[in-house]
Design a protein around this nucleic acid. Sequence first.
DNA 1: CAACACAATATTGTATACAATAGTGTTTTC
DNA 2: GAAAACACTATTGTATACAATATTGTGTTG
Lengths: 235, 235
Amino acid sequence: MQKVFDAKPKRSSQTVNADTITAALSMAVHEHRIAPGSKLAEGELAEIYGVSRTVIRSALQALAHAQLVEIKKNRGAFVAQPTLIEAHEVFEARELLEPRTARSAARLSRPDDIDRLKRHIENEHLAMDAGDQGLALSLSGQFHIEIARIAGQATIQAFIETLIARSSLIIAIYWRRESALCESHAHDALIRAIEQNDCQQAEELMHSHLVDLHSALDLREKANVARSLREALIP
Amino acid sequence: MQKVFDAKPKRSSQTVNADTITAALSMAVHEHRIAPGSKLAEGELAEIYGVSRTVIRSALQALAHAQLVEIKKNRGAFVAQPTLIEAHEVFEARELLEPRTARSAARLSRPDDIDRLKRHIENEHLAMDAGDQGLALSLSGQFHIEIARIAGQATIQAFIETLIARSSLIIAIYWRRESALCESHAHDALIRAIEQNDCQQAEELMHSHLVDLHSALDLREKANVARSLREALIP
DNA sequence: CAACACAATATTGTATACAATAGTGTTTTC
DNA sequence: GAAAACACTATTGTATACAATATTGTGTTG
């Protein structure tokens, strides 16, 4: 079996608790190193991370609440598989929240915020050039979270973070191969608008960026790809 | 000590699992039967509900993720005490999400939806007449959730549910005694707009309703009421 | 040989035992 | 007698053991 987890077992200098495992699994999902639908067996994870099942369960429950994994009673935890309907809902919610947030960010941004955004973009380009699409996607998501952070609304930021996490799953399932994911230009333009405190422009750019993403999902064909075996195999 | 929990210990016919305990505690917070800041000791809850600490911990973690309780490392779980800033953020988020949701609800509502809303209002009035302010408040919150349900966006509905849960805590802390909480009229007007599929009216009514609620919070005096002893006692 | 029933196995759900930590009370020392 | 060091208690954090459940494999029966 392929090794997909990045945390080393039993690094004695660092305590491995539920939060670190939650973060590690979350990162693995964000970077598409674990596919939607994958079984996350407690015993296996406990062995990998060198802790008891107790702390694994805690981590899995946290991920379940963020809707990144689905826990089925007496069946175990699986990486979530958002349905087509849920995919639409997630992007509609993002189109509702993020443009307004980008506007606030443009109004409130300070010079060091811009620096951080630019560093993010650089890393994104670097990952892209290195061919690490998973990392690039993850950084791309963090870019949106960074904008929410600048807007200074922790409550809405938390919502956006869960939406972006789910978006990563949605992209893993419904992204159409044909369209390349070169959204870097959109991000570049966003930074400029925010840097110049152009609220209106920032809001509009974010909105069109999200509409682009939304429409780049393959909404028909993949719909009936193995959501459940039963549905897939009954003609 | 006063008995604040409603679940009977060891009802043999019904399995008591983490979800039921989460719901029971959540309800108790919604109805203001447990005050913000209260300690929720694992052993005590385990005894009350007749289960082991394992399942109590699971329930508390779920509540923590919904931000209804705060878990402090090696200290335990406490009913959350939203700060003034968080209170503002929650209502600003509601003002962003709910008017749009009310609009959708007005567009999509069906006759039986209206029936359910009206039954909700009735129960709200009944609880009010019976002097059970806690129950009335809880039902009032559920009214908003019901509207989100009608709008048919599960993702946004989930956000609104967490916002309303936190609103209950905020009201417990920052509600000013002077203003009576007779928001029933606002709800009545909302139902009429939704029943008549008047989208614009529903959106505006919801917005002004939330602004009313927001402004009915006491944002100055209570701000420095025992957020922490340290801050309260140092001049 | 197909279909059902039953047993074996593996995994999750729960309880309990032990370890670690924070808070509190007591004792010692100056 | 005040302050600091220590020990004690209570509570949380973690591991492990046991119970319950689902799945899979095997055998029986028509």
